[in-house]
Design a protein around this nucleic acid. Structure first.
Lengths: 199, 199
DNA sequence: CACCAAGCAGACAGGTTTGTCTATCTCGGT
DNA sequence: ACCGAGATAGACAAACCTGTCTGCTTGGTG
């Protein structure tokens, strides 16, 4: 009864099949939305048995959360990389963030921010919604840090402006894949950062 | 056969039942997303017969498009009203736009931009997606006009910056109903407009 | 009055969705 | 040689979704 070690607890550990499922989910959920992709499709496309699927992810919602975690990891990584590539000056890093946006928009099949899209499909208060808020909050907290290092008089306000711009770029880029949009976001960010730091 | 006048062509004219359906759709689609609301729910909540529903809207997608038209009318109206309320100076009007954002975020049950949310649920190329792009384009064109009247050296670029900010505010406000977000958008807009006009 | 458009009520068809369950196969380790 | 973990294949249940169709009621108009 209480012997947890041998019972079939939801496997969170890596596994060949689990990776395949997660991989398929990442592609399909992003491309079509979480609601448009059924469990059967996921199973078929990842070449896995139904029982295996439900063993690793007791419900579809669990898979959605795992998908969101993957999106978080990917996007956060891209932001950090873009900042690092912009040099050592924190002010340049703040602007450099927007190179991640440009790269994302250029990628084929770009469809905006996985978090925002998923949140649009889930009701406020749901786990997916909550996780989206946490993600956005973490990103903004990190940008606030960079803004602090850049010596901004009001780092929180600067970070807020920049995240607004970033989210706007993500949302707009999902509609028309106009490269000008991302570039405009970057230019605008440059202006905002310069104005904030020269105050 | 060819006598169109008497056959049951999809009624686009107003009608008591039609209004009720559209009204329910506006509420439910916005609150829960178009995919989460089934035809049966729509019918039950608007107290209408199924046949009546399908007479006015031959398919659910038709209703979705009608819903988007309503969203367009509402949001465009609010933007125009906010601009007008900001006074006669076009520069003030550009900033005043963001009062519409603030009001929207404060409204109870606010869940972002109906267009962006619906687009997140529909595949690129679908009628809903196309209509969303058209809506965003129309808004930006109008803002470009105002920017031109304000004497901006590059009205298109200014409008692009402002719409990015606006979309960002719409997306962010849908997650956490933090009133600071909308205010930050307005402040940022003020800075951008002033910078653009003093160039 | 007779007619007809508009609406109501609800059964029905056919497909899809999530999730459970049984039965079998294939390994690696002891 | 054997056992158990993990995988496969697929039937099945129960709900739900879109869309069609038949019948009945009602109110206005020629």
């Amino acid at each position: 009864m209480l012997d947890d070690a041998t019972e079939s607890a939801p496997t969170a550990r890596p596994s060949e099949a689990r990776n395949r499922i997660l991989d398929t989910a990442n592609r399909l959920f992003y491309a079509q939305g979480v609601r448009a992709v059924g469990v059967d499709t996921l199973i078929a496309k990842s070449g896995v048995a139904k029982a295996t699927f439900y063993k690793h992810f007791p419900s579809k919602d669990d898979l959605v959360l795992a998908y969101l975690d993957a999106v978080d990891k990917a996007w956060t990584g891209q932001l950090h990389a873009a900042a690092a590539a912009a040099g050592l000056d924190p002010a340049d890093q703040l602007v450099g963030l927007f190179d991640a946006l440009t790269s994302a928009c250029e990628r084929d099949g770009y469809r905006g921010c996985g978090f925002i899209n998923t949140a649009a499909e889930s009701t406020p208060g749901s786990p997916a919604h909550v996780r989206t808020i946490a993600h956005k909050h973490a990103v903004r907290a990190w940008i606030t840090d960079v803004a602090t290092r850049a010596g901004a008089p009001d780092p929180a306000a600067l970070a807020r402006s920049l995240t607004l711009l970033l989210d706007g770029g993500l949302a707009a880029g999902a509609l028309d894949a106009d490269p000008l949009t991302a570039l405009a976001a970057r230019d605008t960010a440059r202006g905002i950062v310069d104005a904030a730091l020269s105050a």
